[in-house]
C-alpha cells in the first residue's frame, strides 16, 4: 500500500485526543465551576447542559487509548506504564465524576451535596492528572529496549505540576464559555465574570509554559527556533493575544456562542504548539512514532474501520447535540 500508515494513525489519534480535550474539557470544566454556584437548581442546569452528551464525549478518550494500542502498541505499553499513577488517578476521578451525573439526582437530600462534591473533585482530579501526564510526556521518559525503565514517580516534576494547573485553567475556561452559551440569567452572568478571569489566567499560564518549555528542554528549543518552524510559529503568539482580546470583548458584550468558539480556537493553538514540540516523537525524547508503529496489518485493518465509521460517529454525535440545542432553561428538567 502506498499509504503512510503510521502517519495517518498519528493524525487520527491526534484528532481523537483533540476531540476529547475539547468535549470532555467543557464537561470537566463544569465540574470545577460547580462550587461557584450555590443554588441547587442552577447547579442542576449546569449539569443538565451536558448530561445527554458527556458519555459520548468521554468515548473519545477510549478511542485514543484503543487507537494507540492498535496502531502503536509499543507506545501504549511504555506510556501507560510510565504514567501509572497519574492515569489510575485520572480513572478514579472520571469514575467519581461519571457516576455523580446520575447519583447527584438520586441521592436523598442529605447526600446530594456529597455527590456534588464528588462531581467537582472527580473533575479536578481527572483534569490535574491529565495535565500532569501531558507535562511529563513533554519532559520525556527513560526508555530502554522500548520498555519503560524509569521510576514510579518520574512523572512528578515542577514542570508537570505546572502543566497540570494549566489544564485546570484551560478546561475551566472551556466550561465557563460553554455555560455562557448554554445558559442565561444568573448562571450566565457568573460564568461571564469567571471566564474573564480565566482568560487572563490562561494567558499567564501560556506565557510561562512558552518560556519554561524551551528553557528546560533544549531539544524542544531547537525544534521551535530552527528554520522553517520559527516562521510557522511566529504568528502563534500574536494569534493567541488577538483571540484572547476578542474573547474578553465578546464576554463583556453579550456574546453567546462566540466566547466558546474563540476558546476552542485558543485551545487548538495550544494543542498544535504541543504537537510541534514533541513531533515526531510519540514517547519523548527518543521513541518516534515510526519506532513505535505496530504491524502494518493491524494499522491497515483498523484504518478501514476508522475511515468508514468516524464520519458516521461525527454525524450522529452532531445530531445528538442538535436535539439538545439551545439554552437550558430553569423550567427545563423540572416537573
Amino acid at each position: 500500500m502506498g499509504i503512510d500508515l503510521p502517519l495517518v494513525w498519528m493524525v487520527i489519534i491526534g484528532f481523537g485526543l483533540m476531540m476529547y480535550v475539547i468535549m470532555d474539557g467543557f464537561d470537566l470544566g463544569i465540574g470545577m465551576l460547580l462550587p461557584l454556584i450555590r443554588n441547587r437548581e442552577d447547579r442542576d442546569r449546569m449539569v443538565n447542559t451536558v448530561a445527554p452528551v458527556w458519555d459520548g464525549n468521554e468515548t473519545w478518550l477510549v478511542l485514543g487509548g484503543a487507537g494507540l494500542l492498535a496502531a502503536f502498541p509499543t507506545a501504549y505499553s511504555i506510556l501507560l506504564s510510565a504514567l501509572y499513577f497519574p492515569l489510575i488517578l485520572m480513572l478514579i476521578g472520571l469514575i467519581l465524576r461519571g457516576v455523580a451525573f446520575e447519583f447527584r439526582f438520586k441521592a436523598d437530600d442529605a447526600h446530594k451535596p456529597f455527590w456534588d462534591r464528588a462531581f467537582t473533585w472527580g473533575s479536578f482530579i481527572a483534569t490535574l492528572s491529565q495535565g500532569i501526564a501531558l507535562g511529563s510526556i513533554i519532559n520525556g521518559f527513560t526508555v530502554s529496549n522500548l520498555v519503560f525503565a524509569g521510576g514510579a514517580f518520574d512523572f512528578l516534576s515542577p514542570f508537570s505540576m505546572f502543566t497540570g494547573l494549566c489544564l485546570l485553567v484551560a478546561y475551566a475556561l472551556l466550561g465557563a464559555t460553554w455555560l455562557v452559551m448554554k445558559t442565561d440569567g444568573f448562571v450566565q452572568g457568573q460564568m461571564r465574570r469567571a471566564a474573564q478571569l480565566l482568560v487572563v489566567a490562561l494567558l499567564v499560564a501560556i506565557a510561562i509554559v512558552s518560556v519554561w518549555t524551551p528553557l528546560a528542554h533544549p531539544g524542544i528549543a531547537r525544534r521551535w527556533f530552527s528554520f522553517p518552524n520559527i516562521a510557522f510559529f511566529s504568528p502563534v503568539p500574536i494569534l493567541v493575544l488577538f483571540t484572547s482580546w476578542a474573547l474578553v470583548r465578546s464576554l463583556r458584550r453579550d456574546g453567546q456562542a462566540k466566547p466558546f468558539v474563540l476558546t476552542l480556537f485558543l485551545l487548538f493553538l495550544g494543542y498544535t504548539g504541543l504537537l510541534i514540540s514533541i513531533w515526531p516523537n510519540i514517547v519523548p525524547p527518543s521513541v518516534s512514532f515510526r519506532d513505535a508503529a505496530g504491524p502494518a496489518q493491524s494499522m491497515g485493518f483498523t484504518l478501514v474501520g476508522a475511515l468508514l465509521i468516524i464520519p458516521f460517529i461525527l454525524t450522529y454525535s452532531a445530531w445528538s447535540y442538535f436535539v439538545f440545542r439551545g439554552k437550558i432553561g430553569n423550567d427545563e428538567g423540572y416537573h
Partner: peptide, 29 residues
C-alpha cells in the same frame, strides 16, 4: 500490550468505533 497489542488493539478499536460511540451517541436521546 506490546506482544499482543497488534491483535487485541484493533479489536478493541473496532469495539469503540462500532459500539461505544453508537451507544453513547443515542443514549442521550
Amino acid at each position: 500490550s506490546s506482544v499482543a497489542g497488534g491483535i487485541t488493539g484493533p479489536l478493541l478499536a473496532y469495539e469503540v468505533l462500532t459500539a461505544f460511540f453508537l451507544e453513547a451517541g443515542f443514549l442521550g436521546v
